[in-house]
Every structure is written in structure tokens, then in C-alpha cells.
Design a binder for these strands. Sequence first.
DNA 1: TGTACATCAGTGAACGCGCGTTCACTGATGTAC
DNA 2: TGTACATCAGTGAACGCGCGTTCACTGATGTAC
Lengths: 189, 189
Amino acid sequence: MPFPPEQKTRSRAQILQSARKLFNQYGYTEVSIDRVMADAGLTRGGFYNHFDSKEELFSATLADFACNRESEVADVMEPHPEIARQIVRHYVSRQHQDDFAHQCPLIALPSDVARASSKVKQVYERVVKALVAMFETNVDTSLDKRQQSLALAASCVGAMVLSRTIDDDEFAAEIRDAVIQMSEEMIDA
Amino acid sequence: MPFPPEQKTRSRAQILQSARKLFNQYGYTEVSIDRVMADAGLTRGGFYNHFDSKEELFSATLADFACNRESEVADVMEPHPEIARQIVRHYVSRQHQDDFAHQCPLIALPSDVARASSKVKQVYERVVKALVAMFETNVDTSLDKRQQSLALAASCVGAMVLSRTIDDDEFAAEIRDAVIQMSEEMIDA
DNA sequence: TGTACATCAGTGAACGCGCGTTCACTGATGTAC
DNA sequence: TGTACATCAGTGAACGCGCGTTCACTGATGTAC
């Protein structure tokens, strides 16, 4: 093997990291492969050593994120309502809205995914299911736990989707606060 | 006036209608001016007789929608919880998801708006405010009415944003149903 | 140990293509006289 | 009433540009002997 054996792996990871950040901030269609590769410190042609197409890169960035979230919810048995509350407060926050490098694709890329292939949608779906699973694990309610978890996930996503599209900071904060308040009541009702 | 006086008005309305449908279905960036004009039965060059730029067309389609929604909520005094319930059931439905010509831009174009200019965002914000105002008018609760209305709007939007990005029809329906259920409980609590 | 070679991640020029926008033109209509 | 003209919504060729993708090439490294 004529290259340092870890180099290709490192380059791939770097491309994924740059792609995630740029896609989250500017959108899948707006970001060119050139821009991703330049951000990763590489040049355009090398891209196809790592991915077959731009869409495959998109799918890979989502899979990467889904994988991390899935491993977080695995093997937790006891409900911890405080964890659910903390996650909501972090998810539905201005800080999350501005942190493109770590932003949840559910709020960063919904339209982009809606128009992508089934393959991309199925990866995105894993992220939705990981968020719902987190609620199902940690919500402590006498009501239908599954239904509450689905509604909580939708509400958090909705609050952030609206928050990021709204120019008026105060109004955006009002929406986020309203959903946090509602969530706290739902998490242990 | 050498042309039938209503012709320009009719053409403009037709361009707006085609643009709204195509933007909702395929997204702002994916749809070219050519395609909009062809759908409207016209050719590309004429576009600039009606709009200064593509972004202005985007803004105009949103303004058109906002204007219609705003006039619906004006001058209603008495709360009608049944109207709120009906609107939720229609908003959070598969039918709404598939009806691109009349789809709410809050769920069709969130990412596109998030990346657009402040001017576009401010028009989009009017649609959000119209939805919240509808809830404030019609929700009948002993809790904080404003907060409940904001949370309801976010939840409906979140349910639909997720629903349209999810490939698995059953899972999408489960999310929609969970939010409808939660909304019914919130509308007269 | 030293040398010739094979490997392959990365390079960068080039490709065809569709985009948003411009502009000189067309031709049906209403107006002036 | 008839004719010459002005208007302007709509046309379609052309523009410069950036895109996703291809491909012949480079050159640092590990291997064979």
C-alpha cells in the first residue's frame, strides 16, 4: 500500500464533516462538490475516489448522524424524564439553530430530503425514529407513551423549522419557549 | 392600450399559480423560470415584464398565500373550537401533503425560505402569524392561550414536515395521528 | 542495503449542460386625425 | 370610415457562469528482489 494506510479513511471523514456542516448551513443543492472538497482541504477530482455521486455523499452524511443517535438510545432501560427535558431544552434552542456542524438534519434539511430519493429518505427516517425512541425511553406518562413521544418529536422539529425561517428573533424565541413549556408538561403527565 | 387591458393581470396570476405549484412540489432552486413560464403557457423572456428577478417571484407567491390566510382570520370574534379542530384535521393530512397547488408554504418550503433573503422570510412570517392567530381566535382553553396556539402551530408544521420526508407511509400516518390527537386535547382543555 | 517498479489518493483541465438574465424583435391592438 | 402610427406583452436567440462528472496525469509511498 503506497499511501499511509489511514489517509483515505481520514480524508473521507473530513469530507463528511465538511459536507454536513455546509449542507446544514446552505442546503444540499446550494453547496457544490468543489466547495465541500475545498473546505475539506482537497481538490474536486478526488471526490470520486470516495463517493460515487453527490447524492451518495448526502446519504452518507445522514447515515453518519443517524448512526450516532442510534447508539445513544441503545440499551437504556429505565425512563429518565430529566434527560428528556434536557434534550428538549437543547434541541429547541437558539444554540442548536446556529451550530451548523452538529445540527440535527431533521431541522436543517427537511425540504432537501423530501425531494431526494427513497434511499435518502430511509436514512433520514432512522434519525426520526432515534428521536422518537429517545422519548419513548424517557417519557414518564400515564397517557399513551408512543403517541406522546411521536407528538413531542413533531413539536420539537416544528418549533425549530419555524424558528430558523423567521426573521424576527423575539417571535422565534416565543415559539421555541411555547414548545419547551408544552413538552415539559407532556414528559411527566 | 394596444393589448386587451386584462391580459397582463391574467398572465401574472397564471405565472404565480404555476410558480406556487411547482415550487411547492420541486423546491425553489430546482424549478427554473423556463419551467414556470412553460407551465403558465408562456415563454421565458416575458417573465421580466412581470417580475424583476426569480427571488421576487418567490416572495410574490408567498405574499399571495399570506394575504389569503390573513383575510380568513380577520374580524372573527367568538372562539369556535370546532373550526380549529377541522383546520388541524385538514392541515395534518395526507390530502394536504399531496395537494401541491394549495399546500401551505410552511411545510412545502421551510428550507428554501431559511436560506432566502430577509424580505422573503418576513413574508413567510406572515403565514406563521396567520396560523397562530387562527388558533388564538378559536382555541378555548383555561391555560395560556397564546402559548397553546404557538405550540399547536409548531406541532402541526412539525408533523407535516416529518410526514413528507418519510418514505414509510404507515409511520408518517402514525406521526400525523399523534399530533391530531394531541391538538384535539389542547384545543379545549 | 539498494534499486526498479507497482499502487493509488489526490490533482486540475476539460466536458456537456442548464441556469438566470438580457435584448433586439414581433405583431395584435387601440388611438389620432 | 379609413389609414398610419405608437404601444407593449410576449418571443426566442444569446450571454456568461457554475455545476456534476470524467480522465489522463502526478508523485509519495510500500514492495520485490
